[in-house]
């Protein structure tokens, strides 16, 4: 076994075990840091797989993302510090079964498929190739991803803003009627339904 193999096995173990511990720890903040550890282990494997750009980008993205996640945890969840035991699960057996089935099914598929085995050349300028590809033939894909991210930003602002399009969103805003002075269009807010 070479050193690279050993490193791969250690990193894989870290990635999978910390990914599993995410759902077993009592502390929400710890859960998000464990997920970050899992992502960083995967990023290190990607560095070993001759993908330095994607690996480093994953590390940076996940570091920021998990900080945001930890913040949301503290905002939304009770028990962020994990002082009390906590296990909030439903349909546990079904989920374990589904997860195990997915793992076994995918593993069987991997083992019984005739996979191609052409390795990337050791000295291949992969980052330069990626740059030429992104700003050349695949520019439309790259730009689409960018526009999708912009749309996601707009969507998240619209969704999380308190004011809706037709008044305060959390009070159940109603659009104006289809005719002047007519019945307001759209869904009747829950608060008004209960009054009837």
């Amino acid at each position: 076994m070479t050193a690279a193999d050993l490193a791969f096995y250690v990193l894989s173990a870290i990635a999978v075990v910390s990914g599993w511990r995410v759902f077993r720890t009592d502390s929400m903040v710890r859960a998000s840091f464990l997920l970050m550890l899992s992502f960083i282990a995967v990023a290190a494997i990607m560095l070993m797989l001759a993908a330095p750009y994607i690996g480093m980008a994953t590390v940076f993205m996940m570091a920021v993302e998990m900080m945001v996640m930890a913040l949301f945890m503290v905002m939304f969840m009770m028990n962020p510090a994990g002082l009390n035991p906590m296990n909030m699960v439903h349909q546990n057996r079904l989920s374990i079964g589904a997860g195990a089935t997915a793992f076994v099914g995918l593993t069987v598929a991997v083992l019984f498929t005739d996979l191609p085995h052409e390795k990337v050349a050791r000295q291949a300028p992969v980052i330069r190739d990626l740059g030429h590809e992104l700003l050349g033939p695949s520019m439309l894909i790259f730009e689409s991803a960018g526009v999708t991210l912009l749309a996601a930003m707009v969507a998240s602002v619209v969704l999380s803003a308190r004011s809706g399009r037709f008044g305060p969103s959390d009070e159940g805003s109603r659009p104006p009627g289809l005719e002047p002075g007519g019945e307001p269009a759209g869904r009747i807010p829950e608060s008004e339904q209960e009054d009837e």
């Binding site: 990635a15 989920s95 997915a102």
Partner: peptide, 11 residues
């Protein structure tokens, strides 16, 4: 990883 994630997302 996919199996673990599926377990988490469902449970």
């Amino acid at each position: 990883l996919i199996g673990t994630g599926l377990y988490g997302a469902l449970s």
